[in-house]
Design a protein around this nucleic acid. Structure first.
Lengths: 332, 332
DNA sequence: GGCATAAATTGAAACGTTTCACTAGTAGAT
DNA sequence: ATCTACTAGTGAAACGTTTCAATTTATGCC
């Protein structure tokens, strides 16, 4: 409550004011040692009265744990991430951890730098959303417990969705609607998740219909020339797209070229970002339980922190098809 | 490079390996004391060879600065925030700071808790996006240097946009298009920024046209009953909305009721969130230079950290009108 | 060559905690 | 009464840095 001086009081001062040793004060406040009922209460009262707050840096140095975890994401601006980050931050807080967030701007260099910085800062663990599958980057992290999201990197605890299943689901939905010439736009090939989605879709299409073309694009609304060209070839009546963001970009391009979705071209996306239901037309997509995944990520991480030598785990979540309005029968 | 033991080497070990005192090692590595040319190089080489990384917790305890700033936002999931957060994180990193991010879920309680936690963690400063104008919450922060974004809280450095100007701009645009009966939907009244936008707009409308109604809504796509009722009254041919998110919600509702934007009702929003241009129709809105504001926030904060006793500053940014397609002439 | 001065180097204290090893009581069992 | 076994409480070391004050070494000048 009241603060006599400007400085925050130290444990020593609390102890002196309470007439006990620092050790007792520490024990009382942390509930660790054995302290008598009334002395504990007295110490606590004095501490409150003085407005004592432990110096977490000192505690961290002494105990070697900072009560802090690092979260490394490629691009906060990608609508896929904020809700993930939010869940992670909240659950971490409930478990007594604060979150250092770093945004790596999709660059492996920034990523390496981030990991290293986090490791220097002594975070107790890291939740890492790698931009690519280049596992060399991960060395920067040293021995810090780490769980990797969305990529299947060896040597880490790993959480991802069943992307192959998702790719298949998407392709089958289009085929079921009657499409026979189907194109595929994947996310950047450096990401295993993007590759898996596209590959699985392409395979289904190849065997059960006809693969018109397959191209890839950055995780962005803006389409690259090759993608534009593929779409403009008008060779496909339906497209499975490896990310909603790209899908929305594709729909915009189609609209701009005077084509309608789904009347002229059907589109199915991936991720179910918040904008997907708001789009015109509302985007059919493959969703994954991203909030559960985020939650699982922090729990897995905390378990790893507690048990550094347990065998690594890999937990895979199922995906689902969300039907909205961007898929229809092929034009005749 | 090479790490002999599992543990990270300490400064003492580096010093011993280099055959110098810890003091010299510290000076050499931080470039602070005066060290001979060749000894410095030797120490640096040994440090690199051993893979030495300073223990930042220890450093923080000793120096009292953590090299960390806290960022407190109400809701990461609101598309207005991620880009802000991204800019803040990046500029902070360039200046040698890491960012502890907390999401307060729009609750003053969580907000108070966050501020307190950050202060305990010893962050060197805080960038705070308050959910409301209740300045009592801010006491939790103690003496930590703080800059407040988007709210005009007394006693802090403050950054915001000229919301009155924005409200006027929006109202005038609608009036210029020929509308005479105009409604206003503001964000939550607990936020001064929302009040200012709405008030300024309402005033202009009252004097230069006719204020059909004025209601408020949470920062959300979902509209509250009073808002729905106001819109459904069909008393206004145009609406100025205090936030794009709400505006998009309003447009959806209008569409659902069979009304067209802008043919039947014109809408103008606020914030220019990333979705605004993607909406159907693309949303006309008032934009503010949010990235410059974010950048300014960290610079202001760093200045405040360096000069705790300088007088408080308040920096106000101009806003602009972005014309897209959600505004048209009134129906006749 | 000697002296003053500056540069390089060092030992040790200090930052605020936690925790180990110990002492002093207290109570129950014999 | 004595011994045992706890429980309460304490002093001091340790965590990895930075930095002060003191010391040693080098440099320049007459």
């Amino acid at each position: 409550m009241s603060e006599t001086s400007g400085r925050r009081p130290t444990l020593k001062e609390v102890a002196r004011a309470a007439g006990v040793s620092v050790a007792s004060a520490s024990y009382a406040i942390n509930g660790t040692g054995s302290v008598g009922e009334q002395t504990r209460e007295h110490i606590l009262a004095v501490a409150a009265q003085l407005g004592y707050r432990p110096n977490l840096s000192a505690k961290a140095m002494k105990t070697g744990r900072t009560g802090t975890i690092g979260l490394v994401v490629p691009d906060l601006t990608n609508p896929f991430f904020p809700s993930l980050a939010q869940v992670i931050i909240q659950t971490a807080r409930q478990r007594g951890y604060s979150v250092l967030l770093t945004d790596t701007e999709g660059s492996p260099d920034a990523e390496r730098q981030s990991l290293q910085l986090l490791s220097e800062r002594g975070v107790d663990g890291v939740i890492w959303f790698p931009v690519s599958d280049d596992s060399a980057v991960g060395e920067a992290i040293g021995g810090t417990p780490t769980v990797v999201l969305d990529r299947n990197l060896a040597g880490y605890d790993v959480i991802h969705a069943d992307y192959a299943q998702g790719g298949e689901l998407a392709a089958r939905r289009l085929i079921a609607a009657g499409h026979t010439r189907i194109g595929v736009i994947s996310g950047p090939v450096a990401a295993s998740s993007a590759r898996q989605r596209a590959q699985a879709a392409a395979e289904v299409i190849r065997t059960e219909a006809q693969l018109a073309w397959q191209v890839s694009n950055a995780f962005s609304l803006d389409l690259e020339p090759a993608v534009l060209a593929a779409i403009d070839s008008r060779d496909a009546t339906a497209i499975v797209v490896g990310a909603d963001l790209i899908a929305i970009g594709a729909i915009r391009h189609l609209h701009a070229s005077g084509l309608k979705v789904p009347e002229d071209v059907s589109i199915i996306g991936f991720d179910d970002i918040p904008w997907a239901p708001l789009n015109t037309p509302p985007l059919s997509t493959i969703e994954m339980p991203s909030e559960e995944m985020a939650l699982e990520a922090v729990e897995l991480l905390l378990r790893r922190i507690a048990q550094p030598d347990e065998p690594r785990r890999r937990v895979v979540f199922n995906v689902g098809l969300i039907e909205r309005a961007s898929v229809g029968p092929p034009p005749r």
